[in-house]
């Protein structure tokens, strides 16, 4: 059983198995904050950042739980870690860079309940990645999330101007667009082999 090479993990997590379009993780922010390209890219940056920190933290937690022999506490520990990570990141950014805080501020609390973050922690554990691979995986997933969000926002900015029946406007239209994006991303399959 040879471990996956790093470039393969990066490519797979960002494109082939895109978190939003193939794994359906982080659909809520995907539908919620994807109406402007500007906000979408900032949200993507915030999520990527939190993902990197979470990958690091959950990797440590996993080591700890494995040594203690308490795998059943994993879920609770992950939730606690993610919630406190988001808090810490928020406080840290507020202290060090008020400008960045202004840009990301409102998104940070939303990230706690973003299933993409918990999903990342769980997948990383299931796949048994070491620290280096976990970081690469988090980076790829974050980039993929950002890419999906920005693409979606681009389409939706145009849709605003389109003349659609009232019935279709809103969630139904966004979901159909997401479906088309997902079909487009299927073209990336096979890249990693």
């Amino acid at each position: 059983m040879t471990p996956e090479p790093h470039w393969q993990i990066l490519l797979n997590s960002a494109l082939v198995n895109n978190f939003v379009l193939a794994w359906f993780l982080g659909i809520c922010p995907f539908l919620g904050v994807s109406n402007k390209v500007g906000t979408a890219s900032r949200m993507g940056a915030a999520v990527t950042f939190v993902m990197l920190v979470t990958a690091l933290a959950t990797w440590g937690i996993n080591m700890l739980l494995d040594t203690v022999g308490a795998p059943y506490l994993r879920l609770i520990a992950f939730i606690a870690v993610i919630a406190s990570t988001v808090q810490l990141v928020e406080m840290f950014i507020k202290k060090t860079s008020p400008a960045l805080f202004k840009a990301l501020g409102i998104f940070l609390p939303l990230i706690t309940t973003n299933c993409a973050i918990l999903g990342l922690a769980l997948l990383q554990t299931n796949k048994g990645y070491d620290l280096g691979r976990a970081i690469i995986f988090a980076l790829g997933s974050g980039l993929g999330f950002t890419l999906a969000l920005v693409l979606m926002a681009g389409v939706r900015e145009r849709l605003e101007l389109a003349d659609m029946p009232d019935l279709v406007k809103g969630t139904a239209a966004s979901l159909a667009v997401a479906g088309i994006l997902s079909v487009a991303f299927m073209g990336f399959a096979g890249l990693g082999s």
Binding site: T2, N12, V16, N17, A189, S193
Partner: peptide, 11 residues
């Protein structure tokens, strides 16, 4: 014996 590797979509 068990074996694994990258397929088209995933491992």
């Amino acid at each position: 014996l068990e074996a694994q590797g990258m397929g088209y979509q995933d491992t």
